[in-house]
Nucleic acid binder design. Structure first.
Length: 930
DNA sequence: GTACTCACG
DNA sequence: GACGTACGTGAGTACG
């Protein structure tokens, strides 16, 4: 019988179900393989409860769950910013989406979606058809966008509150009947969906206007009659925008559908199909309830441990036992482990190598752990202890390295098997050099960092002691230290097994401990979008390296050495005796004891302190300190840069491969080590020339793109300083504007000294300004500095408010947050004594510095897909700058693409009220590119 | 190993 | 009211 009078159609808003399930539940994972499954579990529970609740005399005859498909719809063709401010879907939700469709079908409920249309449009079309056929409709959703459909036998049900929404409730909410809801919505706009509406007009006024004029078109036509001048002007000025908004909110009753109402007839679930699905998901509790309801026997779900699939895994208290670890010496043994890993879906692993330097390290062995206490070590390249001129032969009883890697590769690259490591970037790089691209990865170091930045460090030893109460075997016990240190391939295999397998065991236990905390700590998105995806991006940058011209450095070294020798002779002559210029202690004795100069301070150790600013002051009364400053500059450049950088040129690649530490800086910034390429000189002319040694390959150029004033822009946004926001929007010189606002002088023809002071204040604000600090920076009396600050706060009260509010938040919560939700803990914020000031300034600075760090991380993560296929490689990051090596011919194209990604990096998660501006340069070397 | 100094954003 | 202070890093050298 065709759908008609007496029939009752239920339409379930599937996406709403999914998101509610996702956010209501902790991040559950499937016991057997760690697949995130919380949203599916919640979804099934909701569907089941819905079926139970809707039974009875008013039970539906027809039902369907309607989903959104893709994020772009015909509305984006009308208005490209429609829903543009929506957050990206959390990464642990994405894989669950197809499973919710499967769940719907398993319950034997029709499941519909259509590309290019929102679920709301399908719901609209079905509701209209059902209404015309004379049937009744219940839409299970609380989405106000659907309220326009209510009436004539259509009503809504808010399943959360178990409240029916009929014509009366709609009128209560919108102040007009369902047929005029779109008119009101078009006027009021919607910040959630990014529907513009009419600026300054909200629900109340919109309803009032529509009630007065009857409908939107009439209102717009007769807008000139409105008494309130501002309201009248708004409607006249924004008429087109309002009409556009109406088209955005208007649901399409004519959405083409490739099924009919009759296809939606309610059917009993097939017990076998449904229980198979629930069993596969390892949902015990709901399986049991469903089985009871359907009157069949609940199937057994294999119990793989103490924890159940639909409860968070509880790490078992298994004692550490180094003797229980297995040493893999045959392929049969290895295959057994691979079988267990495939069945389980996750594994913790660790690589052992000959060096901590990823570009020089050779793989020696791999350890695996599948459960607490269940770990193994696969020795690959251990050598016998005997020294001979060939470095000793391979120890007996090892499967060949190539064979093992060939066997491991499918597992390590299997997208269905999660690989867990501590500092996974290291292991990923080592394996990448062996031709294996490990994915997907979880990293216990980054879990700890996302959860606890600022509380403690995130090295494995520290984490193990803190969270597992276990001190791992120190590596020194195996390889010694200092001169007699040996490489790991020389460690006897039985010792290596105890050490290496323990590391994998610890990593697995840490993962079980930390991963479930992400959700409660509200840092799942941070971990999934800002930490985890960065691992492969940085690994590739580090493996690529940057070309450094040894000759340039070596020439500079020689020149520096010569100049230093001359300066040293001068200094000794001026001092009247030879001494070690590089020793602050000896220098202090010469300056302050022998020569009797004033202004010296002693450090904690009682030795004279001789930092640059003290020597600069002394330079006005004597020649010696100035020479020492010159000498120091050269000494720094020579030892840290021209000499040491040469040692970092990899003999195989001819390039320098830095390593970025992701969890080093508390604020979210990266840190570069071995060598540090984030502090290559630029501020002095002599230092800047070091950058000439960083070069592009023949036929290529270096591109450098950096964010202009990103931290000040973020401050202007967060603190909501209109004057600064406008200045950034208009591209005004921000420091000159600050000076102008403070001293009332015009921006045009600004005195450079005044501008310099304003610039110092702007920077000071980012650092948690103090009179003392500004005074020292500007070399002015403290009272003057304080007067500047007072004036600044008077002119920009929002900045003071931000600083006070941030401090207050930190004191109340023990942490601060970036705009993207990164948490930086501030454990010392409530301390008394001198530490309090530090903590307060750090708390003020962290959201600003951290937000900037988040933005460039987002840009880097999006960069690889964005420039895919272009002859370009991302090489370096220097906090607000990215450096690329690009084919000369493609430089323009790449530069513009990169700029686009960088300038849009905050979108769509955060809508900044200031533009991000990126400045680009290029050249044969870094000095020319910057 | 710690302190000092200085390179960068 | 005194005290001590700009935020975030890494690395090289001296010195105990």
């Amino acid at each position: 019988m065709a759908f008609g009078k007496g029939h009752h159609l239920h339409l379930i808003d599937g996406s709403a179900f999914i998101f509610r399930a996702y956010h209501a539940l902790p991040p559950l994972t499937r016991k057997s393989d760690g697949l995130p499954i919380g949203a599916v579990s919640g979804f099934c529970n909701m569907l089941f409860r819905y079926i139970e609740d809707s039974a009875g005399p008013d039970a539906p005859t027809h039902a369907a769950v309607i989903f959104d498909k893709g994020s772009l719809t015909f509305r984006n063709e009308i208005y490209d910013l429609y829903k543009a401010n929506r957050d990206e879907m959390p990464e642990d939700l994405r894989p669950q989406i197809p499973l919710t469709r499967e769940a719907t079908r398993a319950f034997n409920i029709a499941c519909e979606e259509k590309a290019g249309y929102e679920a709301d449009d399908i719901i609209a079309a079905l509701a209209c058809q059902a209404r015309e056929a004379g049937g009744r409709v219940t839409i299970i959703s609380s989405d106000k966008d659907l309220m326009q459909l209510v009436g004539g036998g259509v009503e809504m049900l808010d399943a959360m509150k178990n409240k029916r929404i009929g014509v009366e409730e709609v009128e209560e909410k919108f102040g007009v009947g369902p047929d005029r809801v779109v008119d009101v919505q078009a006027l009021a706009g919607d910040s959630v969906d990014n529907v513009p509406g009419a600026p300054g007009i909200g629900l109340k006024i919109a309803a009032q206007l529509i009630n007065e004029y009857g409908d939107l078109e009439t209102l717009l036509e007769r807008a000139g009659e409105i008494k309130q001048p501002k309201r009248r002007q708004t409607l006249i000025d924004h008429a087109e925008q309002i009409r556009l908004s109406r088209r955005l909110v208007q649901l399409d009753c004519d959405t083409p559908l490739d099924f009919t109402l009759d296809d939606l007839e309610v059917k009993e679930p097939d017990a076998e199909v449904l229980l198979e699905f629930l069993g596969r998901m390892e949902f015990r509790t709901i399986s049991k309830r469903v089985a009871e309801k359907l009157g069949v026997e609940a199937p057994a779900i294999e119990d793989q441990g103490a924890a159940q699939a639909d409860a968070p895994p509880v790490p078992e208290a298994v004692p550490f036992d180094a003797e229980a670890y297995e040493c893999i010496r045959s392929m049969t043994q290895l295959d057994a482990w691979l079988d267990r890993i495939a069945a389980q879906g996750y594994v913790a692993f660790d690589t052992e190598t000959t060096s901590l330097s990823e570009m020089r390290a050779e793989l020696v062995g791999i350890s695996l752990a599948i459960a607490p206490g269940r770990a193994c070590y696969i020795p690959l390249a251990h050598r016998s202890g005997e020294d001979d001129m060939f470095g000793g032969g391979l120890s007996d009883g090892q499967i060949g390295k190539d064979l093992v890697l060939e066997a491991l590769k499918p597992m390590l690259e299997d997208p269905a098997i999660l690989k867990i490591a501590q500092n996974a970037k290291y292991d990923a790089k080592i394996l990448s050099r062996c031709g294996i691209e490990v994915a997907p990865l979880d990293d216990t170091m980054l879990l700890s960092y996302a959860l606890h930045a600022g509380l403690h460090t995130h090295g494995m030893d520290a984490l193990s002691e803190r969270y597992l109460g276990h001190n791992p075997i120190p590596i020194k016990e195996l390889i010694g230290s200092g001169k007699s240190q040996i490489t790991f391939d020389r460690v006897p295999i039985p010792d290596a097994v105890r050490y290496a397998a323990e590391d994998a065991d610890i990593t697995l236990r840490l993962w079980q401990h930390l991963k479930p905390q992400l959700h409660a700590g509200r840092v799942t998105t941070v971990y999934e979008t800002l930490e985890r995806p960065l691992i492969p991006v940085l690994a590739r940058m580090e493996l690529e390296g940057v070309k450094v011209d040894r000759n340039v450095l070596s020439r500079m070294s020689g020149a520096f050495a010569q100049k230093m020798a001359e300066l040293e002779a001068d200094i000794h002559a001026l001092a009247g005796e030879p001494f070690n210029v590089g020793s602050p202690k000896q220098l202090g004795e010469i300056l302050f004891d022998r020569m009797g100069l004033e202004g010296g301070k002693k450090g904690k150790t009682g030795a004279w302190s001789t930092p640059a600013d003290v020597l600069e002051d002394l330079a006005t009364v004597h020649d010696l300190p100035g020479r020492v400053l010159d000498w120091r500059q050269l000494s720094k450049l020579k030892s840290t840069y021209t000499d040491s950088l040469q040692d970092h040129i990899n003999p195989e690649t001819g390039r320098v491969h830095t390593s970025y530490s992701i969890a080093g800086a508390n604020t979210g910034r990266l840190a570069s080590t071995e060598p540090n390429l984030q502090n290559i000189p630029i501020r002095t002319e002599e230092g800047r020339r070091i950058r000439e040694a960083f070069v592009a390959e023949e036929g290529k150029v270096l591109l450098s793109l950096d964010y202009s004033q990103i931290e000040l822009r973020i401050l202007a946004h967060i603190a909501g300083i209109d004057a600064l926001r406008e200045a950034f929007r208009d591209g005004v010189d921000i420091h000159a504007l600050t000076a102008s606002e403070m001293f009332g002088t015009p921006v045009e023809g600004m005195d450079p000294m005044i501008r310099r002071q304003a610039k110092a204040i702007n920077f000071g604000v980012i650092y948690g300004i103090s009179g003392f600090g500004l005074a020292r920076n500007l070399r002015i009396p403290r009272e003057d500095a304080q007067a500047f600050i007072n004036r600044y706060f008077e002119r920009f009260p929002g900045i003071k408010d931000y600083m006070d509010a941030t401090t207050k938040f930190a004191k109340a919560n023990g942490y601060v947050e970036t705009l993207f939700g990164r948490r930086i803990n501030t454990p010392d914020i409530n301390a008394k004594g001198p530490g309090a000031g530090f903590a307060k300034r750090a708390a003020i600075n962290a959201p600003i510095q951290g937000t900037a760090a988040d933005i460039i991380r987002r840009a880097m993560i999006r960069m690889e897909p964005a420039i895919e296929g272009m002859p370009a490689k991302m090489l370096l990051q220097v906090h607000d700058e990215l450096i690329f090596e690009v084919d000369e011919a493609a430089a323009d194209e790449v530069s513009e693409r990169v700029r686009e990604i960088m300038e849009g990096a905050a979108d769509p998660a955060v809508k900044l009220s200031v533009p991000l501006v990126v400045e680009a340069g290029r050249g044969p070397n870094w000095a020319a590119a910057h």
